[in-house]
Write a protein that binds this DNA or RNA. Sequence first.
DNA 1: ACAAATCGGTTGGATTGCCAACGGAATGAG
DNA 2: CTCATTCCGTTGGCAATCCAACCGATTTGT
Lengths: 224, 224
Amino acid sequence: MKEYFPLLTSSPLFAGIGRDDFDAMLRCLGASLRAYPKGGTVYFEGDTVTEIGIVIRGRLHLIKDDVWGNTSIVTEIDPPGLFAEAVVCSGIGRIPVSVIAKEESEILFIDYKRIVTSCSSACAFHSKLIRNMIGILAQKNILMSAKMEHITKRTIREKLLSYLMEQARQMNSRSFDIPYNRQELADYLSVERSALSAEMSKLKADGVLDYRKNHFEILRRATP
Amino acid sequence: MKEYFPLLTSSPLFAGIGRDDFDAMLRCLGASLRAYPKGGTVYFEGDTVTEIGIVIRGRLHLIKDDVWGNTSIVTEIDPPGLFAEAVVCSGIGRIPVSVIAKEESEILFIDYKRIVTSCSSACAFHSKLIRNMIGILAQKNILMSAKMEHITKRTIREKLLSYLMEQARQMNSRSFDIPYNRQELADYLSVERSALSAEMSKLKADGVLDYRKNHFEILRRATP
DNA sequence: ACAAATCGGTTGGATTGCCAACGGAATGAG
DNA sequence: CTCATTCCGTTGGCAATCCAACCGATTTGT
């Protein structure tokens, strides 16, 4: 198991856990490692899950099957990504997506109860692990709230400005870089790339915005 | 403090905490009660916060000030609602909204560190409180993910069907009630009420859907 | 340096949604 | 019962978005 230490310690879940504690911890948590062939199914939508999963090797797709049979990819998860943590931690249990191995994969499973129940030997890392878990869930909350904030706006112009102004606020500057290219930004705001480009040009022409590649500068307040 | 027991115990955060432990718990957590006049400001956007808040009396508005001065209400919080839990638990600290008292209000503040740090007397409720906190964050995650799933769809038809099919799946039946009226459903999906009504009529005409008030029945798979 | 691939801006026609306004049905108060 | 209110469906004109297609610029691989 030790071979996975470098990978796992880069996961937010295990942040701050030392190499020395590592093996003992995994044993104490009753972590189990399972392998899946390419195309194999980890969970079917609706399955009851009690373990969180951490991708060690390979790649997973969380997919949703439309009632008519169309399947759409909700997320892709690469090592050392977490999945099923929200369903498990919420106590809901029924997973709302199917999980399939897009490549031959190895996954580390940890039973949620073993995380939140202090073991008899009162392992020191338990509380650290729990704080990490809380941090992960809370952070995801923040990110999703922010995204909602933007997406619920009516027009592309509003969505874009909402996003850019938040970036400016976070960077504490009117001039900043964003971590997306055009297509990714369009996907994030769930609009068409071409329509986004068009709106950006208009904003530039209006003197509201200046940009070049993924560097942006807000010049003045936008009027509709 | 005991007077607040019935209210607070109805909060998911304190679920399962007995009356006997209650006062000791609040003292152990260093909970502090503060009052705000109508219109008073609890937090300004960007403030650094380390305490989660629980509304005991009154009502709060979480608001966001557009750079141009337009303020929009993000959420309304009534007793015994929680706020600032995500910012605090994520360790981000800078609150992304302003919090104002819409009415004269009383708020119970609890320092996050006191929750996740075991006290010297190893209070039994600590772990319960932590599990509750995790559950709250995770549940919010699930709800937001589901909403995203719907909202990111391109057309009203798709948004609506996405929502309804999820309801059907959850209720395990093609016939079910939803907890919204038209306006609320439109707000949830962030579309226009009238446009939603129109689309619903079309779906009914197409034989895909039947409904009456807030009772729905899915008749057959939708084709675009 | 050349070819191929990726990325981003532009354009025009079809689709879709927004908005404002109206009217009917249901509900509730006096 | 009558009036006022709320909820919901309908409609039409206008604005925004989607979609497909194209092209130039930049990047990447060889």
